[in-house]
Simulated assay, not measured.
Amino acid sequence: MAATDNSERLRSTMGLVLLACAPGLLTLLWLHGWGLLLNLLLCASAALASEALLLKLQHRPIRPALNDGSALVTAVLLTAALPAYTPWWLPMIAASSAIVLGKQLYGGVGKNLFNPAMVGYVLVLLSFPQHMTQWPVTQVLGLADTLQQVFGLGPGNQPDAWAQATVLDGLRNNRSLTMDELFASHPGFGHFGGRGSEAVNLAFVLGGLLLLQRKVISWHAPVGLLASLLLISLVCWNGSGSDSNGSPLLHLLSGSTMLAAFFIVTEPVSGPKSPKAKLLFGIGAGVLIYLIRTWGSYPDGAAFAVLLMNLCVPTLERWAERGQAQAQ
């Protein structure tokens, strides 16, 4: 009976997470159209097929694991993080790696040491960096062009025709333009942050608030990440010159900030359990995101930040326990 209750609770939680992802996914669908939809179908099919295969090889029940929704949540998070219009095999490799390397090799749901979606994302980012930097502009390709691009059905369009550098990449590689000139001339810049990504980040905030309201997640990790990112970007903000690291609003409303804050650092298995440790986990992730964005080799850095903080979870839990013991 307890196992059944746990299974139902997990399925209900995953359902709420999927519902909370809907505003962000719909915004991405509005921006990228068929490319986003194909990414979702490819990630979901690869994640579910990989989970079923690994369970079959281990002679474990397949249907209950597929029905709990955890593999589908991993696929949705990867869909939100991957560029649209990538070749079909890239999201499938990312989703399969997330399930196999990030989840099932540790024993399945509830036993993973690292965030599965970020494992899959980092693997394809390191393995296929050229494809992972081809982010589409906000206009939507038609269905025929999308199929050509994703499945190689015909010549397709060259990435130069539909891809652009992201606002974070443009900021990191800027050497001569002031921030005002960047916002005026670079197609990736919007009002305060990335064009399009401003709306996407705000949409993921709506989903995150739903998870907070339904007590699926606690406030500690999201607040820790956003507060630390806000603070360090404010302290390091050196104006609007050509050497600027970007304003706090730019960092909050660009890249995968809100996806990371409400859906990635709050992953309950690979993250801390105690409230103080969750807060420290979020703070560390926010600082690392800024450091990687500003001085690292990758323009966003959320995935690396989360995986590095996953390594620190035992230490964070010990610090939290020690602080609680001293307070008593």
Rank of each mutant, 00 (worst) to 15 (best):
S242R: 15
A203R: 09
L250V: 06
L10T: 14
P187N: 13
A277L: 08
L19F: 02
C236L: 07
L234F: 00
I292R: 05
P275S: 10
G170Q: 09
S7L: 10
L252T: 12
P23D: 04
M309Q: 15
L259E: 00
S197G: 08
A325Q: 14
P159E: 05
L168D: 03
L171T: 04
L16H: 12
T13I: 05
A3R: 09
N245E: 01
D243R: 11
T146N: 05
F281K: 09
G246F: 00
L29V: 08
T133G: 12
V119F: 02
F183M: 12
W89D: 04
R63Y: 01
L123V: 10
G152E: 05
P272I: 04
A65K: 09
V137A: 11
S12Q: 14
A144T: 13
Q104S: 13
M92L: 10
L211W: 04
P222C: 10
R172D: 02
Q130D: 11
A320S: 15
A22P: 01
L42F: 03
V73R: 11
Q328N: 08
G239V: 11
T138G: 01
V122H: 06
T166R: 12
L308R: 13
Q130M: 03
G241I: 09
S50T: 15
A144P: 03
R322D: 02
W219N: 08
V235H: 07
L38N: 03
L18P: 09
Q58N: 12
G246Y: 00
D68V: 11
L126T: 09
T13G: 12
A52S: 09
R318P: 05
S240Q: 14
L55P: 06
Q158M: 00
L171F: 00
N67K: 15
V17C: 13
F263Q: 14
H191F: 02
A44K: 06
H131I: 06
L206H: 10
R60T: 02
L182E: 01
F304N: 10
G296H: 06
A98L: 11
Y121R: 15
L141I: 05
E198M: 09
G246T: 08
K276N: 07
G207K: 09
C43A: 13
V150M: 07
V287L: 15
L288Y: 00
S242D: 09
Q324G: 03
A303G: 14
N67F: 01
A80N: 13
E317N: 07
A325P: 03
I232L: 07
P222E: 06
G102L: 03
V287D: 02
G102W: 05
L147I: 12
L291I: 08
L54W: 14
L54C: 15
V313E: 08
S127D: 06
I93V: 15
A84L: 04
S297L: 12
L229H: 07
A95G: 08
L307C: 03
H251K: 14
A20T: 03
S70W: 01
A144W: 00
A161D: 11
I217K: 12
L28M: 14
L55K: 14
F304A: 14
L206Q: 10
P299A: 10
